[in-house]
């Protein structure tokens, strides 16, 4: 029974101290937190509100409340579905290729002895190049008038490849170049995340498997990969959400020509080119919700623990 009389005072003392610490914590962290919310939550709420109107900036008087009218247009328009499909294709292909390529490069960086520093340095270069510059570099490399790619393919195939092949003349080749540029630019990030995961694996475990006679592939699939599942999932989530908002490469290379529109370029066109603020806002909201769904699938479905390691 004595504990009962003791408890309240002890709890109160703790609460006082905790309260002070909390007040100081929020005083220090509050400004950053508020600014962060102000620059994101406010615009998205504004977008939510604007999306309920038919509103064109060139004709402000015609502003009309249409409730979910804009969303209805979006979900019945084939342009939206083709943009969604393109975005999904780019996301899935780039992330899948980058996972394999990034993992191979991470393994290489992890084990390499000889040009170790050089390799690590060079791998970081695409990260430091502006995405628009990467887009232009690949655009000019593939273009028929300036590019070398057709020439190289022609040489490699002993003349079978047509040097006048127009990479930006139809859907599939355009998407291929967009995806190549995206992969080139963002693979370093993927491989660095995976390298950090690799570095955490206990080397002794792999050594033990080796001594027990496990082959390279057995060690890879039974020891290495299961032990860096968390790092892989986080890297996939980061890259998937990043790829899903792809804009720069598409804008520079095709501007959506040949049906290569993505969700971001579609929203841009509605807002900036056509100044359809209501429709643009509705698309922004849809894109935002889709990103939330993807993040939710990762966190729930794959059990990604984002706060892992910090408390």
């Amino acid at each position: 029974m004595t504990t009962i009389t003791e408890r309240p005072s002890r709890r109160k003392a703790l609460t006082d101290r905790a309260r002070q610490e909390r007040a100081l914590g929020w005083k220090l962290a509050g400004p950053a937190f508020i600014v962060m919310l102000a620059v994101t939550a406010y615009p998205i709420l504004q977008a939510l509100w604007l999306s309920l109107f038919r509103l064109r900036l060139t004709d402000p008087d015609s502003r009309e409340f249409v409730f979910f009218g804009n969303y209805q247009v979006i979900f019945t328009d084939s342009l939206f579905y083709s943009a969604l499909l393109n975005t999904l294709i780019i996301t899935v292909v780039t992330v899948a290729v980058e996972l394999v390529l990034g993992f191979a490069i991470a393994m290489l960086m992890h084990r390499i002895v000889l040009p170790r520093r050089t390799l690590r340095t060079i791998v970081l270069i695409p990260y430091s190049i502006i995405t628009v510059v990467s887009a232009f570099a690949w655009l000019y490399a593939f273009r028929t008038d300036t590019g070398f790619v057709n020439e190289w393919l022609n040489t490699l195939t002993f003349g079978a490849w047509n040097t006048t092949f127009d990479w930006f003349g139809s859907w599939a080749p355009s998407m291929t170049v967009i995806i190549i540029s995206e992969i080139w630019k963002t693979t370093p990030f993927m491989s660095l995340l995976l390298l950090a995961g690799l570095a955490q694996i206990d080397g002794a475990m792999e050594e033990a498997a080796k001594v027990d006679g496990a082959t390279f592939w057995q060690r890879l699939f039974r020891v290495i990969l299961p032990n860096m599942k968390a790092a892989i999932m986080v890297a996939l989530l980061f890259r998937a959400l990043d790829a899903f908002r792809i804009f720069d490469n598409v804008f520079v290379m095709t501007r959506g020509a040949n049906n290569t529109e993505t969700l971001s370029t579609l929203a841009y066109k509605q807002t900036i080119d056509r100044v359809e603020i209501g429709m643009g806002s509705a698309l922004s909201v849809v894109l935002f919700l889709l990103v939330c769904v993807i993040a939710w699938i990762f966190v729930r479905g794959f059990n990604v623990d984002l706060a892992k390691g910090r408390n």
């Binding site: 804009f247 971001s264 643009g280 909201v285």
Partner: peptide, 9 residues
Amino acid sequence: FPVISLVTP
């Protein structure tokens, strides 16, 4: 956050 979502508002 999808950057483009902030652009319209």
